[in-house]
Design a protein around this nucleic acid. Structure first.
Length: 734
DNA sequence: TACCTCCACGTTTTT
DNA sequence: CGTGGAGGTA
């Protein structure tokens, strides 16, 4: 028996050693799914069943892909280079580079990130003369992506009304412009790759027979197009091992369809679904609470986590008077835990939406507790970095109008809007790129010479960097472009200069580490029907630019000392901590009010809560505030319904159980206590919890009038905000 | 061209 | 309340 199998539980073992048939593995939180995936790969190879070249493993994030490669390397003394392990986008990129001609792309095609895509959409809309008031570019961008992710090109989409007809025009023109410039967006990577396999039988059968084993992580997050791509790649001879957890599907809002799991079972004739239900992360009480909560969802495949460990501590529920009070409480507990030896970085402070972090950060900052907020700007998304990349893109491909527009006047060179308009008109007239138009028929006069100067800058950069190693190319460009000089002169530019220098290091690291290897790997001994695949020799610069687009860098503030982890529940997925604080558990916030009108919205919110709870290993805090400042006004919120769905015997209640004027309305009283004493209207006061025969329970948020005209606004847990006349409404104080 | 003021807006996010 | 984008002015 192979030693990689040691220590697996029966279900894990079954999943790892499945025969060559497609399977669905329902893997709960903390059940060792990554271990199962990597061990299966190791087992397949070690037992000599398949060559590493016959395996393709797909993930959603680069982090997950790296983790997988690291673990495989630890188990097997082989070079993992020939193995295709990566994200959907990364793998499609790899395939498209190898077969760029068949895909009708330049080999050095550039990848647009969301921001690049948006500016392209804006540009196209301006060209078409579409009113961007009536058709917000963001919406057009969403429209394009949503359709691509359904596998639909513009001509395949049916226009149902005038509005969608306009958006379709934009979609078509946008695609045409991308083709002209030789650029692709994220969704295009997948769609183009899908179409490549669909239209080219030779390539399709080649890859279908090569990749005998397809393994997919986080399968519940696949969208329509990703599923179609997988299906096409599998053909009739390959098998797919799909690992996922429908209870952790929290990305429906961006097109993920956990329904793909059911469809997969059907399409691939999956007989038995393997369930990994033993949890190796959390104590029993935490799991019992999470299980009880998620049982309230109807749309489930069904699964119940258990642990061999003890029940552990009860969950702690804190009811705070205000958001500030909530923060103060959390801070106190963090300090106490720190005293007990729990590291700050082993504690996470979670919230539903980013706006909630401010109050928490403020409190932490004042208390001088180190913290780290996830979800800020990432390295390759920074302004100065994008500028530098735009120069590099222009060197690699002068047809790239987006790059040209970004830097033609940055640093400023006296090329204003007027000149730019002339240039764009010229390009539009001749149907060519801006660069071409700038070279062949530049505008007359001063503007013309400014443009000629810019053209010379780019050309001399291209000449000077030809044949240089990548880091030196980058170094030359950040200097010769004038970027470094520009930011040196700026007041707050020091950080930006530093980042530009860091870009040189990033390029050096890229060359030294993986970098190009991925593109070269196949040449060794891949059985191939295609000459291209054997000789992928990508320019280092092109590869680096693709890397920059596909991996925007760490999604967090600078790593470093031991720090408390602050993040949204979404970004916490996949992580675990000794202690987890889930804050803002209030109706309207979590579940978020916007979700209540959406089909399946509440269930997605509940899965989100489930994900949040299952992050905790040992201790879980749940908290809510009666009063919270949001969008500049004080809101009174009822406790989240999710708190009622947790068995009460698992909870230890702390804090104010009953709202009281003394503690409860530090900020509310500014409004309600105008003349030294609390305003009461017909025996009710603002912030009071009430019961209505039809609408159920709620909280009084505002009041106006008096006597017979007295009206109060109540925030009902189920029906939202309503104005009620006290004379008629049968309100009961709670 | 740079700065400033005003206004609108305000889930979740990876590639 | 805070931010970010747009538009206007020096």
């Amino acid at each position: 028996m192979s030693q990689v199998l040691e220590g697996l539980n029966p279900e894990q073992l079954e999943a790892v050693t499945l025969p060559h048939s497609s399977a669905l593995i329902l893997a709960g939180a903390g059940s060792g799914k990554t271990r199962v995936l990597t061990t299966r790969i190791a087992w397949l190879i070690q037992t000599g069943q398949v060559s590493p070249l016959a395996i393709i493993a797909v993930t959603f994030t680069n982090k997950a892909a790296r983790e997988m490669l690291t673990r495989i390397s630890a188990m097997l003394p082989i070079n993992t280079r020939g193995m295709w392990v990566g994200t959907f986008h990364g793998l499609c990129n790899r395939m498209l580079r190898a077969h760029h001609r068949e895909a009708e792309l330049p080999q050095a095609f550039q990848i647009l990130d969301s921001a690049d895509q948006l500016s392209m959409v804006k540009r196209v809309m301006r060209g078409l003369g579409v009113d961007d008031e009536k058709y917000p570019p963001r919406q057009a961008q969403y429209f394009i992506n949503a359709n691509k992710e359904e596998g639909l090109r513009a001509p395949a989409v049916e226009a149902v009304d005038d509005f969608s007809r306009h958006l379709l025009d934009v979609y078509a023109a946008y695609d045409a412009q991308c083709n002209r410039e030789g650029v692709v967006d994220f969704a295009e990577l997948l769609l183009r790759c899908f179409e490549l396999l669909q239209n080219n039988e030779l390539l399709r059968t080649h890859y279908q027979s090569r990749f005998k084993h397809i393994l997919v992580d986080e399968f519940q997050d696949t969208n329509r197009l990703q599923y179609l791509w997988l299906k096409l790649l599998a053909g009739s001879t390959s098998t797919i091992i799909a690992v996922g957890d429908d209870d952790q599907s929290i990305y429906a809002f961006r097109g993920a369809r956990s329904g793909n799991m059911l469809e997969f079972e059907h399409d691939f004739g999956v007989g038995k679904v393997i369930k990994l239900e033993q949890n190796y992360r959390s104590h029993g009480n935490i799991l019992d609470a999470a299980n009880a909560l998620i049982r309230n969802n109807r749309a489930r495949l069904g699964k119940n986590l258990w642990t061999a460990e003890g029940k552990g501590e009860p969950l702690r529920l804190y009811e705070a008077a205000t958001d500030v009070d909530e923060a103060a409480y959390i801070l106190e507990e963090v300090r106490a835990l720190q005293g007990d030896g729990v590291g700050l970085s082993d504690m996470a402070l979670l919230y539903r939406s980013n706006a909630q972090s401010r109050v928490l950060e403020h409190a932490l900052f004042n208390a001088a507790i180190p913290y780290r907020v996830y979800g800020g700007l990432r390295f390759f998304e920074r302004q100065e970095i994008k500028h530098a990349l735009a120069y590099l893109r222009l060197i690699a491909n002068p047809e790239d109008d987006g790059a040209m527009l970004r830097v033609i006047n940055f640093p400023t060179r006296g090329i204003g809007n007027r000149t730019l308009e002339q240039l764009q008109a010229g390009a539009l007239n001749s149907g060519s790129s801006l660069w071409h138009s700038a070279c062949s028929n530049p505008p007359a006069g001063r503007a013309g010479s400014a443009i000629a100067a810019f053209v010379r800058v780019i050309e001399s950069m291209r000449n000077a960097t030809e044949g240089l190693p990548l880091p030196e190319v980058v170094e030359h460009v950040i200097e010769a472009s004038g970027l470094v000089n520009h930011y040196r002169k700026e007041r707050e530019g020091a950080d930006r200069v530093e980042n530009l220098e860091e870009l040189v290091n990033a390029a050096a690291a890229f060359v030294a580490e993986e970098g190009l290897a991925v593109y070269e790997a196949d040449s060794a001994n891949a059985p191939t029907t295609n000459a291209d695949e054997q000789a992928i020799e990508l320019e280092p610069l092109t590869a680096f630019l693709a890397h920059a687009s596909l991996e925007a860098g760490e999604n967090q503030a600078a790593a470093g000392a031991d720090a408390l982890q602050l993040m949204t529940v979404h970004s916490a997925k996949g992580l675990e901590f000794h202690t987890v604080f889930i804050s803002g558990l209030e109706e309207g916030l979590f579940p978020h009010e916007n979700s209540l009108n959406e089909e399946g919205g509440l269930e997605e919110e509940r899965r989100l809560m489930y994900v949040a709870m299952t992050r905790a290993r040992r201790r879980l805090y749940l908290s809510h505030a009666q009063t919270r400042m949001l969008h500049g006004q004080t809101r009174y919120n009822v406790a989240s319904r999710f708190l009622d769905e947790v068995p009460q015997e698992l909870l230890k209640r702390l804090g104010a159980a009953v709202p009281s004027l003394a503690t409860g309305f530090a900020s509310g009283e500014v409004m309600s206590r105008q003349r030294g004493k609390p305003v009461t209207v017909g025996g009710f006061r603002i912030g009071q919890h009430v019961l209505h025969p039809k609408f159920g329970s709620g909280v009084i948020v505002q009041a106006e009038g008096s006597g017979g005209d007295a009206r109060v606004q109540v925030n009902f847990r189920d029906d939202g905000l309503k104005w009620l006349a006290l004379e008629y409404a049968k309100l009961l104080p709670v």
